[in-house]
C-alpha cells in the first residue's frame, strides 16, 4: 500500500478498549421513549403480562436500545460545531470524512427492565481497502453487553467507513 490512510500508531490500537466498561440500569421509561421514537409499539415493550406470556421475565426492550441506554451524558461545552461531542477515543486516520457503514448484532439472552447491563467497546478491526471511489478505511467497533448475572446478552459490531 503506497499511501496508507492508517498511521502506524492507530494500527497498533487494534484490540484496545475504546470505551467502558460502563454499567447502566435498564429503565422502562427510557426504553419506552426509545420504542415510541422508532415507532415500534410492540406490547412486549409496554405490558408486563404480554411480555411474560411471550416468555420474558418482565417487560423487554427494543433490540438496539441497549446501545443508546449506554450513551454517557456529557456537558454541552464539549459539543463541536457539528453538534457531536469531542470524541476522546477517536482513532486517528488520514481521512476527511467518517460515515456510518452499518452494524452486525448477535443476541444471546433477553434484556429486560431492571437488568444492569455493562458494555465494553473495543477497536476490533482497522483495515484499508480499495473501493471504486479510491481507498477507504473500514473501522470496526465491537461492543460486548453483559448482564448482572455475567451472561453476555449481545454483541454489536459497528462499521465505520472513512475516506
Amino acid at each position: 500500500m503506497s499511501s496508507s490512510l492508517i498511521p502506524t500508531e492507530s494500527l497498533a490500537r487494534v484490540g484496545e478498549v475504546l470505551a467502558g466498561p460502563v454499567t447502566v440500569p435498564i429503565d422502562a421509561r427510557e426504553a419506552q421513549r426509545y420504542a415510541y421514537a422508532v415507532g415500534d409499539e410492540n406490547p412486549i415493550y409496554f405490558d408486563e403480562k404480554v411480555a411474560q406470556a411471550a416468555g420474558y421475565r418482565t417487560i423487554t426492550v427494543p433490540p438496539l436500545f441497549i446501545t443508546h441506554a449506554l450513551v454517557q451524558p456529557k456537558p454541552s461545552n464539549m459539543l463541536r460545531e457539528d453538534g457531536l461531542y469531542e470524541d476522546t477515543t477517536s482513532v486517528h486516520l488520514k481521512v476527511s470524512r467518517m460515515m456510518f457503514g452499518g452494524e452486525e448484532w448477535d443476541f444471546f439472552e433477553p434484556v429486560c427492565v431492571g437488568d444492569a447491563i455493562t458494555a465494553t467497546t473495543r477497536l476490533a478491526d482497522l483495515d484499508q481497502k480499495e473501493g471504486s471511489k479510491g481507498p477507504f478505511v473500514r473501522l470496526v467497533r465491537e461492543t460486548t453487553f453483559v448482564n448482572q448475572e455475567e451472561q453476555v446478552v449481545a454483541r454489536s459490531r459497528q462499521i465505520g467507513i472513512a475516506r
Binding site: 422508532v38 404480554v50 438496539l64 456510518f100 452494524e103 448484532w105 448477535d106 433477553p110
Partner: peptide, 28 residues
C-alpha cells in the same frame, strides 16, 4: 441506527412476540 430499529421491527412484527431475534446485520 433509527433505520436499524425499523429493520428489527420489520422482523419482529412478522415473527411475533414468542419468537426470538438471534442476529441482524445491515449495511448503510
Amino acid at each position: 441506527p433509527l433505520q436499524g430499529s425499523w429493520l428489527t421491527q420489520f422482523v419482529t412484527d412478522w415473527a411475533g412476540p414468542n419468537a426470538r431475534l438471534l442476529s441482524v446485520e445491515w449495511q448503510n
